[in-house]
Design a protein around this nucleic acid. Structure first.
Lengths: 214, 214
DNA sequence: GATAACTTGCACATTGGTGTGCAAGTTCGT
DNA sequence: ACGAACTTGCACACCAATGTGCAAGTTATC
């Protein structure tokens, strides 16, 4: 008859490995709402006791470190598998794919600013940044992206622009279709396109249609 | 022979009102670097003891509340005094003026996400948001801003875009002139302009020249 | 130069989270 | 059904920060 905190009424135990995953998932969900949530809250959300967390992770920091690594892996995989000969389309596609990983992006964005994890998050996300950097460089070279900014500057701007829209979209409670479109539009705008051109590009490219990324 | 923590060697006391201001200034500077800095650090940066803080503010929260109000006042004043018949120019000008209040923007951006102050920051910044909202609405109506997004959505996007660039610019340690230009370019891009058009607009409008905002 | 205002330097209580130890359960695997 | 693995439920120790109380200093001001 466990009496942890509340919301513990289903099967109290499973396999250990499963519990580790449950902790990571619970941490992701909990920290997305309260970035400073304590271990107590995270453990409870996973259906475990705070004490049990120490059976899987050395402590809070290690839990979050694992979380960052797993989140970054998702985003890095997305960046690695996105490509298109037309650079603006590729960039828009990257933004669109990130929309479908909204939870992860939000978490990474939050952790990348929380003091104990800034450096680790930066290291873990290096692959995405490199991929975007390469894309941007190519786009500037072939004249499909704006030429008035240095490649690395433009890359960071596009990244920030995407994150900003992602965050705003989740605050404004947009539908998936709206968010999907909004991220692409914003990223293309930052990339230098006129708004009509951006809309036309999205309308014309079947890869950018909403269901395409599901 | 005081032995507080360190960096206390100048005149240990002044007027009380002046110390209150010193505390606010120190809090602004300190929290800009470490958003979770303690009262100890803030007081020390102001040349005071933590104990003395309670002579001016009821506690940490009240100090930060005062800080938010004063920062918001600066930004609201900027927004209120910016105007131009050509809407894109007005929006770019707003961005440019914000560049010169970078410290304040950064602080507000940080506090607007820290849990105990989210709501207050939102309330304090309502005037800026209303001003930008009005500008955007006008721009959509007269056809100078993009017409593919709802006015309020576009306004929030432009706001986020400006903040994102402001933060990135201070990370990348840009010069004043570079940051000034970058913010305008980014804001105009989000507003829907082609990058060449944005550059041309900035080059053509004397109000947007770097020294103009000094 | 006296006085009120302000600050210092303790000491102390409080809070909230982290990390450990250990005995007693519960469940998984075989 | 047995043992190993895992979890629970305490009990602590610990830490960093906040907020107070009070006596003793220092400074602006009249």
């Amino acid at each position: 008859m466990p009496t942890i905190t509340e919301e513990v009424r289903r099967a109290p135990r499973r396999d250990a490995a499963a519990n580790r995953e449950a902790l990571l998932a619970a941490a992701s969900a909990t920290l997305n709402e309260h970035p400073d949530a304590g271990l107590e809250a995270i453990a409870a959300a996973a259906g475990l006791t705070r004490r049990a967390v120490y059976g899987h992770f050395a402590g809070r920091d290690e839990l979050i470190a694992a979380l960052i690594d797993s989140g970054a892996a998702r985003l890095n995989h997305i960046a690695a598998t996105v490509d298109h000969p037309h650079t603006p389309t590729a960039v828009a596609l990257l933004g669109a794919r990130l929309w479908h990983a909204l939870e992860h992006v939000r978490l990474m964005a939050a952790m990348a600013v929380r003091e104990p994890h800034v450096e680790q998050a930066a290291r873990a996300l290096a692959p995405v940044r490199e991929r975007l950097g390469a894309l941007v460089e190519r786009g500037i070279d072939d004249g499909t992206l704006r030429a008035d900014l240095a490649a690395d500057t433009l890359a960071r701007l596009i990244e920030r622009s995407a994150i900003a829209v992602l965050l705003e979209a989740s605050v404004a409670r947009l539908t998936d279709a709206e968010g999907h479109r909004l991220v692409m539009l914003s990223v293309l705008s930052t990339a230098g396109l006129d708004w009509r051109a951006a809309g036309a590009l999205i309308a014309a490219a079947p890869e950018l249609a909403f269901e395409a990324a599901a």
